[in-house]
């Protein structure tokens, strides 16, 4: 198969980027999209040019590294998969394929198609955890969790943190990501003690990173490789409303259970 690739090239965060067109032939329909790019890069290296930088790791759809907007859709034309699970047989021979990075203020470009997604980590650091010490946990069966609740929590927890939701959103909002994280922990009894503080802290962290707000358009759900439902955004809104009514203001950061003892 043959394709014409229009790829966004940008040498650094503060440099001007632009599209460069590369013809590729000799593409097998059994190649994954990333293997097709590997092939292009091998050719560029031998020709003394710099290869196209793109993020990838597990190549089986679970690590969340790969992050390409292909023909205007994050992770490309197939639903429910990551870029690394996309195969060339999905494309028409001879097609022109446009490849861009995730675009959002909160995801600055590092090089070419690689963006900095640490904003998502910082949201998690603001409250996406349960504060329990290692050791001293009670027996796992002491907490009874109904199968349905456990399954719904798992649905939310299946988010792989790739950021496609942000990339797809008209407003570059991270609501689906935050909603998945908040809902996962809010569903479970272990997560309940900190739920008020958590949702407020994570929403505020999201604001600080410069993500937009939710427009309820549900593009995020439509591109999510793990089919995380927008119903979790409703749940996040509910958690937020509940936390607002419960009256916690900005979380006191001094509530960590350690530190004062010595």
């Amino acid at each position: 198969m043959k394709f014409t690739l229009r790829i966004w090239r940008q040498r650094g965060p503060n440099e001007r980027g632009g599209f460069v067109t590369y013809p590729v032939d000799d593409v097998s329909p059994d190649m994954s999209f990333l293997e097709m790019l590997d092939g292009l890069n091998q050719r560029l290296i031998v020709a003394g040019e710099e290869p196209v930088a793109f993020e990838h790791d597990c190549r089986e759809g679970i690590c969340g590294s790969c992050s390409l907007v292909i023909d205007g859709v994050p992770h490309g034309p197939e639903r429910g998969v990551t870029t690394c699970q996309l195969y060339m047989r999905r494309f028409a021979n001879g097609a022109t394929i446009t490849i861009e990075p995730w675009r959002a203020k909160a995801f600055p470009i590092i090089r070419d198609l690689v963006v900095d997604r640490r904003a998502l980590d910082r949201i998690m650091q603001a409250g996406g955890y349960i504060s329990v010490n290692t050791g001293g946990a009670v027996d796992g069966n002491t907490l009874l969790i109904g199968k349905e609740e456990a399954e719904t929590a798992m649905d939310a927890a299946s988010c792989i943190g790739c950021g496609a939701c942000v990339a797809a959103c008209k407003n570059a909002s991270a609501m689906l990501f935050v909603a998945a994280k908040v809902s996962h922990l809010a569903m479970l009894p272990q997560g309940k003690p900190e739920r008020t503080r958590r949702v407020m802290a994570m929403v505020r962290a999201m604001e600080r990173e410069g993500f937009g707000s939710c427009g309820n358009q549900y593009e995020c759900e439509a591109v999510c490789p793990k089919h995380v439902s927008v119903r979790f955004i409703a749940m996040l809104n509910r958690e937020y409303l509940r936390a607002s009514i419960m009256g916690t203001r900005i979380p006191a950061r001094s509530d960590a259970p350690h530190g004062e003892s010595y």
Partner: peptide
């Protein structure tokens, strides 16, 4: 604020759900 969320627009954009 939303407009500031994406300072550089996509060259090509296809909607699925909106």
């Amino acid at each position: 604020r939303n407009r500031r969320g994406r300072p550089v627009p996509y060259a090509l954009r296809r909607y699925r759900a909106a």
